[in-house]
């Protein structure tokens, strides 16, 4: 027995010694000792999946971890599967949850066996924007045209989006309230599907993220009419032959008084993890956001990168819960 323990200790020490130089900057005393699992709260190919795999690629490329990373997709029940799984991995900092704001919003609208404060927050790495899209040959040139048509329409115009009671439907309710219109919301399996349905003219509009509809915009199938942001997006390359993301006006300037609506790309640790473990992962994620791979991902998907951690992140969550709770309550979505 003793001999075995000794051998194991020696091996472990050897391993750490061999790998240590690359991680000299790592904060705290904790570091992973076996393979790390990224628990993705979406299916393979979903937005959260691409997020997690980008982080995985950056970590591998720049040797940010002394161990290898395994990505597992647990996206059933709008991600509830992944959260429940991570919640049961009490104190295991070798598992990292990749999510959006569903960590704290899903428990409000769905009967699930976890709460947002079960998890130890690492941080938000990026924010995905939302836009209002119409079909390319739609008569509505601007968001204002579209709103006028929506007010006059009977039956109401059809707004498509991803799963119910999630960001797209929340944004749709916000638009309804802010601009005093009524839509028929049609939930699809994801933004990609909603984009194709718009291209085929089966729905009248959707609120896809830029990356979900960029192919359709370039291909002359759909086009954005406004962006839910305080100011237009930063000047970048042209997307079509004549326009870039920066040419799209803000929705507020078009008569939809919603100043800002976006979706964070977040990471969490299972419950009961220590401050040292948390600090380690904050350090890793911070360095991920500094890699060229990450920058390339942000540019390609037209997200804004802003590393939010600690008190700022907690504050963001608190504010979002308060704001969302009001909408959910008004829509009658709140569970208990």
């Amino acid at each position: 027995m003793q001999r075995n323990t000794f051998v194991r200790a020696a091996l472990a020490a050897g391993a750490i010694a061999a790998l240590a130089p690359g991680y000299a900057q790592a904060q705290g005393e904790w570091r992973p000792t076996r393979n790390v699992e990224f628990v993705v709260t979406s299916g393979a190919g979903g937005g959260t999946d691409v997020f997690a795999r980008t982080v995985q690629a950056a970590i591998t490329k720049h040797n940010l971890l002394p161990v290898s990373v395994i990505v597992t997709n647990k996206g059933a029940g709008a991600g509830a599967e992944g959260f429940v799984y991570a919640r049961s991995a009490q104190g295991d900092a070798h598992k990292v949850v990749f999510a959006t704001n569903n960590t704290w919003l899903l428990p409000l609208v769905s009967r699930v066996a976890f709460k947002a404060d079960d998890f130890t927050p690492i941080g938000a790495l990026a924010f995905d924007e939302f836009m209002l899209w119409v079909k390319y040959d739609s008569p509505h040139k601007t968001a204002a045209d579209f709103l006028a048509a929506a007010r006059a329409a009977n039956p109401p115009l059809r707004m498509g989006g991803s799963q119910p009671k999630d960001t797209d439907q929340t944004l749709t309710s916000l638009i309804q309230r802010a601009a005093n219109v009524r839509f028929t919301y049609v939930p699809f399996r994801g933004g990609g599907e909603a984009g194709v349905q718009l291209a085929g003219g089966h729905i009248d509009a959707n609120t896809n993220n830029p990356s979900e509809s960029i192919g359709g915009w370039r291909g002359g199938q759909v086009r954005p009419v406004c962006v839910f942001r305080r100011e237009p997006m930063a000047r970048g390359n042209l997307v079509t032959t004549t326009q870039g993301w920066h040419d799209i006006p803000t929705c507020a300037s078009q008569g939809i008084p919603i100043e800002e609506f976006n979706m964070p790309r977040t990471t969490f640790l299972p419950p009961g993890t220590t401050a040292a473990q948390q600090a380690f992962w904050v350090g890793v994620m911070r360095r991920v956001t500094e890699t060229p791979e990450w920058q390339e991902y942000i540019t390609r998907t037209s997200q804004s990168t802003r590393f939010l951690t600690g008190e700022a992140f907690a504050d963001h969550i608190r504010k979002d819960i308060t704001a969302s709770r009001d909408i959910f309550e008004a829509e009658g979505w709140l569970i208990n």
Partner: peptide, 26 residues
């Protein structure tokens, strides 16, 4: 179009995004 005709195609679509390609007519 970016329509995944099967579970496998859905994964490949994710791959396209990561390689920097956007499915679409273009």
């Amino acid at each position: 179009l970016g329509i995944p005709g099967s579970a496998t195609a859905a994964v490949m679509l994710g791959g396209l995004m990561i390689w920097g390609l956007n499915p679409g007519p273009m």
